[in-house]
């Protein structure tokens, strides 16, 4: 199998079509392993992976940890809900100390955009970004693309709309970059107050009307509304959001054709997505979760075994 051009997976903005294709193709192998009675291969035996999580996360951390263990890597978890600054030790010191214990791969989630980029220029480990602020969440976008490819066969020419708070979403950014590289037509839909400045300068269509967005779309990726942060700040009420932008069975049925509904989770039932949609035939939410483990196995394998 060929090898990646990148040494770290910090984001998808600068990852080539070839690299994304390689990751997606490799994922198929690992999906097959996940169907076996014994879901473990010796691929990363002897390698040490540290999961450095500076922000709360359950599903992404579990997904990474399962992927690491199924590749037979030695796994260490480091969780700190507070930022490195408030702990008194700088992020760089934390990373250098952990690295001094001889680790091979660092999987990091951090609330600050660019945190992984910063460390990768000063450390020797391989870095995989598990989400950095509102910047990127590359493995999430890769698993979304993997899921879309499974259902639609190709990403080339596929019409995909990302719905919700685009301004604060790392999932949105990684999906936009990855999908554009893979030849998809990308749109976003949400309240104008949740669109980042000058977004129109990316090759992205912008909808503020959900019906028009659905008309455009072969697939919609519905982002989680941050209940605690957004209501009252970025739009008036959750009720208004649901009525104007929520993905409902009625809105989808009215299309009279198939459409794929993704959601990176965790879902707020009855806010950005109706329960009937989340649990219904349009939804690929649970396959996304399964693909997430396989994608992370593929990324860990390709990054972890790449020659210096």
């Amino acid at each position: 199998m060929s090898s990646l051009q990148i040494n770290h997976l910090l984001g998808l903005q600068h990852v080539s079509h070839e690299d994304i294709t390689l990751i997606l193709d490799s994922t198929d192998t690992f999906l097959e392993i996940l169907e076996r009675p014994i879901k473990k291969v010796p691929t990363l035996q002897g390698k040490t992976v540290v999961n450095l999580f500076f922000e709360n996360s359950t599903r992404t951390r579990i997904s990474f940890e399962l992927a690491e263990r199924r590749l037979s890597a030695d796994v260490v978890n480091f969780s700190a809900s507070t930022s490195s600054v408030s702990k008194g030790e700088t992020l760089l010191d934390t990373a250098l100390n952990i690295e001094a214990m001889k680790v091979d791969i660092v999987v990091m989630r951090h609330s600050a955009a660019g945190a992984g980029h910063f460390l990768s220029t000063r450390c020797t480990s391989r870095f995989i970004n598990a989400g950095d602020g509102a910047h990127e969440h590359p493995t999430q976008a890769l698993l979304d693309m993997c899921t879309l490819r499974q259902k639609h066969g190709t990403l080339d020419g596929l019409n995909v709309c990302i719905m919700g708070d685009i301004a604060h979403s790392r999932v949105a950014r990684s999906n936009i970059y990855g999908l554009l590289t893979m030849g998809a037509n990308v749109a976003v839909c949400g309240p104008s107050s949740m669109m980042p400045y000058e977004l129109e300068r990316l090759r992205v269509r912008i909808f503020t009307n959900v019906e028009e967005a659905l008309q455009f779309s072969d697939a919609v990726n519905v982002l989680r509304i941050q209940l605690e942060r957004d209501a009252g700040a970025n739009f008036p009420t959750l009720r208004e959001y649901h009525n104007s932008f929520g993905i409902t069975r009625q809105r989808l049925d009215r299309l009279g054709r198939d459409i794929t509904v993704l959601h990176p989770g965790p879902i707020n039932r009855g806010v950005e997505i109706e329960s009937e949609v989340a649990d219904g035939a349009y939804s690929v939410i649970l396959p996304q979760v399964t693909n997430g483990v396989a994608i992370r196995m593929a990324v860990l394998y390709l990054i972890g075994t790449k020659a210096e």
Binding site: Q13, G114, A134, H135, H168, Y197, E198, R201
Partner: peptide, 15 residues
């Protein structure tokens, strides 16, 4: 600064 660059990087911005 708030611009296409802050939009691409996801950094909080100053207009």
């Amino acid at each position: 600064n708030e611009s296409i660059v802050s939009t691409e990087l996801g950094l909080p911005s100053i207009p």
